[in-house]
Design a protein around this nucleic acid. Structure first.
Length: 320
DNA sequence: TGTCTATGACGTTATCTCAC
DNA sequence: GTGAGATAACGTCATAGACA
């Protein structure tokens, strides 16, 4: 049973907006694009792994769980809950060969032969597991064993390790073998520690304590207002800016016409700057020639607002 | 001709500046 | 610190123009 679904994270959505709207000459643009492609690959890997979880209908499944630990947070890609144990899955989409050496270092060898140090995913998953156990103790949930696995969702990833490195065998699997791995773990935990009702209660509690990540990427990448390309973009060809003619947005590139293209660009605004907006900010962001057009668009959206005349602040809806 | 949109005029309100 | 005037921002209303 799917309890919490996986969507594109706020971070990925913000990066997508920044890729579209930050000037290409910005010194951090390529680093930002790199982060986006890495995170999209991870997202794709996690989604493709979901296919291998379909046979396990007796588990409650939660994706992208972010919980507090001490003063910070820990994130779980996928958590399977059963009355006998919890299974924490860390999904990795990695290309090339991963070598686990005798010093517990992880080296990734790319297809072109270049090498780079990699964060050891086994340490990562062990840390998540101990954070989860701590979290459950703190929140006084009934005790239940927790197991963790690192799932390699790219079938072409080659994993090399010394035979003495038992952790690799214990913790790492490729997604097509995940079913077999779970069946083995299933046989190890035969005692029911929780009732179905308690499992449901625990999953509801986890969803309630989930804290969505909402990083300030503009600050992180040092992007200022002047670095952002303003205007309404075309949803068909992504050309920016489209022009407004007779209350209709017209894309000069693909000639796509629509009355409500500005709504998509206002979603960009929400992801970049937040949900609060004044008529002046709206006019500037959408490159409107008249504040009256801005006022009309705001009125048509029927948005909640604070303030009377001067200083009125509208609250935009959640991004699409 | 009716409807819709854009825009100018004007009023209201908040904020800033400066003299007292 | 306070009050008056200047300025900016915004809402409302009226009207002109385009279009079906």
């Amino acid at each position: 049973m799917l309890v919490k679904d996986r969507g594109k994270s706020i971070r990925i959505r913000k990066l997508e907006v920044m890729q579209r709207r930050v000037i290409k000459l910005h010194p951090k643009y390529l680093i930002m694009e790199d982060e986006l492609s890495g995170r999209l690959a991870g997202h794709f890997g996690e989604q493709s792994n979901d296919y291998f979880l379909k046979p396990f209908r007796n588990f409650s499944v939660m994706h992208d769980l972010r919980l507090t630990a001490h003063e910070s947070y820990f994130q779980i890609d996928t958590l399977l809950l059963s009355p006998r144990y919890l299974l924490n899955l860390e999904v990795k989409y990695i290309t090339g060969t991963l070598i686990f050496d005798h010093l517990n270092q992880v080296i990734r060898v790319k297809d072109d032969g270049s090498e780079e140090a990699f964060r050891n995913p086994i340490f990562q998953v062990k840390r998540q597991q101990s954070h989860l156990i701590e979290w459950m103790t703190k929140n006084r949930t009934p005790p239940i064993p927790v197991r963790s696995l690192v799932v390699m969702s790219n079938p072409r990833t080659i994993i090399k390790a010394l035979p003495s490195n038992k952790d690799v065998l214990h913790y790492i699997t490729h997604s097509p073998y995940l079913q077999e791995k779970i069946k083995v773990i299933d046989k190890m935990y035969t005692d029911e520690k929780l009732t179905i009702k308690e499992v449901n209660k625990l999953s509801k509690m986890l969803v309630r304590h989930h804290v969505p990540e909402n990083p300030d990427l503009l600050k992180r990448y040092g992007i200022e207002d002047k670095d952002i390309i303003k205007g309404v973009y075309c949803t068909e060809c992504f050309y920016l800016p489209v022009v407004r003619k007779k209350a209709v947005w017209l894309c000069p590139k693909c000639l796509h016409k629509s009355k409500d293209l500005h709504l998509y660009s206002l979603s960009d605004y929400v992801l970049l700057f937040g949900k609060s907006i004044t008529n002046k900010q709206l006019c500037e962001f959408l490159c409107l020639s008249s504040r009256h057009i801005g006022k009309r668009l705001l009125n048509d959206m029927n948005l909640p607002h604070t303030g009377g005349k001067k200083g009125r602040v509208y609250t935009l809806p959640d991004p699409y």
